[in-house]
Each structure stands twice: as structure tokens, then as C-alpha cells.
Design a protein around this nucleic acid. Structure first.
Lengths: 112, 112
DNA sequence: GCTATATTCAACACATCAGTTGATCAACGG
DNA sequence: CCGTTGATCAACTGATGTGTTGAATATAGC
């Protein structure tokens, strides 16, 4: 299941902020409300609310409604889409390096 | 092998740009110089040069020297550090969800 | 209805980023 | 030497991001 470029933009950019990564770390242990999520941080709840909007736009979290609360939960599938993009190219690179090593090895043998 | 928060900031932020991801895609197939990398893009070589600096600062690529060329090659280990951060939390979340599903299942059985 | 709580919206300040152009530096080739 | 090529540096512009404060919205509970 592939993802378009803008989703990758938003997903990776979302992870490029320590506050948002901390929010993800917290949400990996279970859903939480904005207030609960904001509690450990020194910044305002409005700022946290915006970080959560960024995560939601990136598809990394989903939000439901429970009275006046807006509980957030992590979306593992979106995380998986990001790792699989990275892994594609990492594996290609590793294969490439092994191939080059093999060629160098061959050259060395012929040389001796 | 863990990575500090600033490295994650730089790494993920670096991937949050389509030009830089395209550079990584290209480099996964083998090393290349700035000129070669810039060729397919509509932006100036200076802009590409800066993107490469961003990737280098993030540790995602390394650069050597070959006369006046500065060949770039991908660093798979840095990519792996990013996927492993994501996977940690993705797996935690998936375990958490399975646990909750199991609890709901138990409740449903007791209810019937 | 009235007040408190949870969350978001709006407007602003400040920093960072991505791109440009023009100049500079370093190495290569005749 | 000297012109050319590969790459970077510097200064500037416009856009985007992160934070603030203060107001607004919506729901809960009496």
C-alpha cells in the first residue's frame, strides 16, 4: 500500500519535531486527551493542540469525540507507511553496496 | 544503537522534503556527484548543494573527495536508526491495541 | 440558565527554510 | 599561466512553522 508524496512530506515533517515525537511516544501506550497530552510540557495547550492537528493532517493520529474531550489515538498504519518508504531505499542501498564489495573482491583475487 | 533527539529531528526533517527524498532515492542506486544529482531537477545547483548539506548534517549521506568532485553516498545505518525509532512505537501501539481488543472480547463473553 | 472545563480559533512575533542571483574557491586540462 | 568546470559561500526574498495571548465555541453539571 503506497502513499503519495505529500503524505510523506507531512508524515516525516511531523516526526521532525521533538514535541510531536514525544506525543507519539505517549500515544503508543494508549489514547489520551489534549489536556492529558499537554500536561508534561512547558508550552501552552494551544500549542499542543496545533501539534496534534499536524499529526492528524499527517494521518499519524485519529481523533474521536467523547463529550467535550477529543481523545487521540495513534495510527500504526501511517507509521508503517513511513518505515516502508525508508526501508525500500535502505535495502536498495545495502544491496548495491554488497554488489560493489563483491566486484572489488573479484578484482582483488585477479590481482593476486 | 540509539540516537539522540537532535539527530532524529534532523533526520526526519530531512526526509520531509520531496527533493531530498528524490536525492535519497537516486543515491540508493549508487554514489553520485552534485552535478549528476542536480541534473534531473528544475532548481539551481546551489539549492541542490544545500539540500545535500542538510542530508549530510542529518547523517543520511557521507561525502568524499575525488579531485574537484564531491561524490555523495547514502548511509543506510542512519536510515535504519529512523525506522527503528518509528517501529518501536508502532509495535508498542499495536501490542496495546491487541491487548484492548482482548479485553473487549472478554467483556463480550461475560456479557453473553 | 449559569459556570466551569476542554478545545479550538485568530492575530501576532519571531525564527527557520527553500529558493534565487552573483561572487568565490579549488582543481583540472591545455 | 589561464580558461573551464565542480562546488560552495553570501546576501536577499517570500513562505512556512512554532510559539504566544486573548477570544470564542461547545459540552457537562448543577
Amino acid at each position: 500500500m503506497s502513499v503519495d508524496s505529500e503524505q510523506l512530506d507531512r508524515g516525516f515533517a511531523a516526526l521532525g519535531d521533538p514535541v510531536r515525537r514525544a506525543l507519539i511516544a505517549r500515544l503508543s501506550r494508549g489514547e489520551a486527551t489534549v489536556n492529558e497530552l499537554a500536561e508534561p510540557f512547558d508550552i501552552t495547550k494551544q500549542a499542543i493542540s496545533r501539534h496534534l492537528q499536524v499529526l492528524e493532517t499527517a494521518g499519524l493520529i485519529t481523533r474521536s469525540r467523547d463529550g467535550q474531550r477529543r481523545p487521540c489515538r495513534l495510527n500504526p498504519a501511517a507509521l508503517e507507511a513511513l518505515t516502508s518508504w525508508i526501508d525500500d531505499y535502505r535495502l536498495t542501498a545495502e544491496r548495491q553496496f554488497r554488489r560493489i564489495d563483491a566486484i572489488l573482491e573479484t578484482v582483488k583475487e585477479q590481482d593476486s
